[in-house]
Simulated assay, not measured.
Amino acid sequence: MSPLILALTAGAVIGLALGALGGGGSVLAVPALIYLLGFTPVAASTASLVIVTATSATALYGHARDGQVRWRTGALFAAAGIGPALLGGAVAGRLPDAALTGAFAVVAALVAVRMLRSRQSSDDARPVRSARAAAAGGGLGAVTGVLGVGGGFLAVPALVGVLGLRMREAVGTSLLVITVNSLAALVMRAGTADGLDWAVIAPFAGAAILGAWDGKRLAAKVSGPTLQRVFALVLLAVAALMLIDTAV
């Protein structure tokens, strides 16, 4: 199968995940770029930030229009993560490929297990404490910078489990966090953008943006807890495949 077809297919799937789940774009984009399109782990993480930034910013508009974005919480969460994301981006270039891949897989697996065990109702929201939002955002920013992910696959469970947002609000708010964190991480990864295959990245991003609109429509038809379980199972599958690859 040609790289163009692979890029369009993978982009559509990743956009669907971002639009429906408010995350999962980078956690799916990085392995797709590595295993399907031949990118190195460092190049894949940089390219995924470009793709996810464009896609999440587009998806954010649709969720905001429906009133599913908690702007104050999302802004505080994202602002706390900018500094750690910048530092993490500087560190990432000095880590070996195997370490990045392994760390990525472990974090994804831990988050998936937490989401599967969570019994948070999608209809029960709690007041958000600023200190808790800032602490969670700072930790997420550091992971974003080091692993080259937009952070949605961590932001969604943090917004639901730690801050008490309803699932649909967490999906919309996470897109704001993803956009800000991805841009911050890209600033520190500017030097790794040289040599990226833009003939693959551009159609990949275009398909992801279109897929995000379909994902948003899908989210409106599926319950919050169901979305949460689907998200967690996808994360577990990806994490298992990446851990197997690093062990071989």
Rank of each mutant, 00 (worst) to 15 (best):
M1P: 12
S2Q: 04
P3G: 08
P3H: 10
L8N: 08
V13W: 12
A17C: 15
A17H: 04
A20H: 09
G23N: 07
G23P: 05
G23A: 11
G24R: 04
G25N: 02
G25K: 00
S26E: 02
G38I: 02
A43N: 12
T46K: 03
A47T: 11
V50W: 01
Y61G: 11
G62Y: 11
R65H: 15
G74Y: 05
L76C: 11
F77W: 04
G83W: 12
P84N: 06
L87E: 08
L87D: 11
G93V: 12
P96K: 04
L100A: 02
L100C: 06
G102H: 07
A103V: 09
V107K: 00
L110G: 08
A112R: 00
R117M: 14
R119S: 12
R119E: 11
D124W: 13
A131F: 06
A133M: 05
G137Y: 01
L140K: 01
L140N: 00
T144S: 15
P157N: 06
V160E: 00
V162T: 14
L165H: 00
M167K: 03
A170Y: 04
I178K: 05
V180C: 03
N181Y: 00
M188E: 14
M188I: 10
R189C: 04
A190I: 13
G191H: 05
L196G: 07
D197H: 14
D197N: 12
W198A: 10
A199M: 14
A199L: 15
V200W: 09
L210A: 15
L210G: 11
G211Y: 01
A212T: 07
S223D: 14
P225A: 09
F231M: 10
F231C: 09
V234H: 12
V234E: 06
L235F: 08
A240G: 11
M242W: 02
M242A: 06
I244G: 13
D245W: 03
